[in-house]
């Protein structure tokens, strides 16, 4: 693998649209559940071990070359919130455009053809990593980092949180990110033998409930 290629894919400036999303942080801030850096850290930790783990496992499995349509169905089943499914497909479509332009591959073309409105973002992310010559560990790391960096960046804006505080939260979470990415890859490696049921399905009730509430807002800073 190329470490520099991984940085290109993981860069927050990679033009895949992620910056417009708070990962549920906007709803949590509005409900008073995140008030400071400690709240941000607890939020990020909860997101990491639930939707972050699931996204990382999907991405790692796609990077291994497992049929992305099976994974797209598995992502649907693990995303009960209709609002979050819409977001995941929108982000998947944007990731697909960026990835096909950056690391063209027949596998990306094939998925884009059968899911013109977008596959779930983690599945596209994994396939993008594969097209870039990266492996499942890389894809899982990008996914877990996205799971926490999105909310951290958003909360800096939403609460006028000190960016140093937000970055310190991310740095403190780093060893946990590594562990969750490793768990995700281990689950991914079970899929070829045991099917997609081997993928984790960890859920966070208030992420799902908050996403549905947020989708109904008339005015919001972030798309999700």
């Amino acid at each position: 693998m190329s470490r520099a290629t991984l940085l290109v894919l993981a860069d927050g400036r990679f033009p895949a649209g992620g910056h417009a999303h708070s990962g549920g942080a906007e709803a949590a801030v509005a409900a008073g559940r995140i008030k400071d850096a400690a709240g941000l850290e607890a939020f990020c930790r909860g997101r990491l071990h639930t939707s972050g783990l699931v996204a990382a496992a999907l991405a790692a499995t796609a990077a291994l070359g497992v049929d992305p349509l099976l994974l797209d169905d598995a992502a649907d089943a693990r995303t009960p919130s209709a609002a979050l499914r819409t977001v995941a497909r929108k982000l998947g479509r944007q990731m697909m455009r960026a990835a096909r332009s950056t690391w063209p591959s027949p596998e990306l073309d094939a998925l884009a053809a059968v899911r013109p409105k977008g596959a779930h973002q983690p599945v596209v992310l994994g396939l993008a990593a594969r097209s870039a010559g990266l492996g499942p560990e890389d894809a899982a790391h990008v996914a877990v980092y996205e799971a926490v960096s999105g909310p951290a960046t958003a909360v800096v804006r939403l609460l006028s949180l000190d960016p140093f505080d937000a970055t310190r939260v991310l740095a403190r979470l780093a060893p946990e990110l590594d562990r969750v990415a490793a768990d995700a890859v281990a689950a991914a490696r079970r899929v070829p033998d045991h099917g997609v049921d081997a993928l984790p399905a960890a859920s966070a009730p208030l992420l799902d409930i908050g996403a549905e509430a947020h989708a109904g807002w008339a005015v919001r800073l972030f798309a999700s």
């Binding site: 995140i34 607890a42 939020f43 909860g46 946990e176 960890a202 966070a204 208030l206």
Partner: peptide
């Protein structure tokens, strides 16, 4: 796993 009672998951409920 960490965060189960935090603002993303149960928040004290």
């Amino acid at each position: 796993p960490g965060g189960w009672d935090g603002p993303a998951a149960l928040a004290g409920h």
